[in-house]
């Protein structure tokens, strides 16, 4: 996963989430309110209406079949997402690697699923209350040294 190069070039800087602004743990006190809304230009202002099942950890992969529509060349962000998801990638990772706002990422990932570009594995979830799942994680962690 770490071999995926940083493709942040695919996102227009003024639409990014403003990462690397030197805020150690996140709050941008007193920042311009419009700055928070600007990333949603990419989604035509949509902040909700996404599939709520798309979580931060949901895995996304490129669709096998041909997509129903071609991506507009005017949307480099969409191309960047598709390119990134050649390997299975979580929504959070897409957001981080493209330096794209998490909420925007979720909307766009939902769009790309609708257009047949991406498989969004919302159904591939583990039951967090399944003892066997937990045991597997325990075994995996114990193997760390």
């Amino acid at each position: 996963m770490s071999d995926v190069p940083d493709p942040a070039t695919g996102v227009r800087p003024y639409l990014g989430a403003g990462l690397g602004s030197g805020e150690p743990e996140g709050v941008a006190p007193g920042s311009d309110p419009s700055a928070a809304l600007r990333p949603f230009v990419l989604t035509s202002g949509r902040v909700v209406g996404v599939d709520p099942a798309i979580g931060v950890e949901t895995q996304v992969t490129v669709c096998d079949g041909p997509p129903r529509t071609h991506l507009p060349s005017s949307a480099p962000e969409l191309h960047a997402i598709v390119a990134l998801c050649a390997a299975p990638m979580s929504v959070a990772e897409i957001s981080a690697r493209l330096r794209m706002h998490l909420g925007v990422t979720r909307v766009l990932v939902g769009d790309l699923r609708a257009t047949g570009h991406l498989d969004v594995h919302t159904l591939d979830v583990a039951d967090p209350r399944d003892p066997e799942t937990i045991r597997r994680v325990i075994r995996g962690l114990r193997a760390i040294s």
Partner: peptide, 16 residues
């Protein structure tokens, strides 16, 4: 503990 360097994503609260 992460096998990758920690990544940062930002979520901004919006009008919604």
């Amino acid at each position: 503990i992460s096998e990758i360097a920690p990544l940062t994503t930002e979520a901004e609260m919006t009008t919604a």
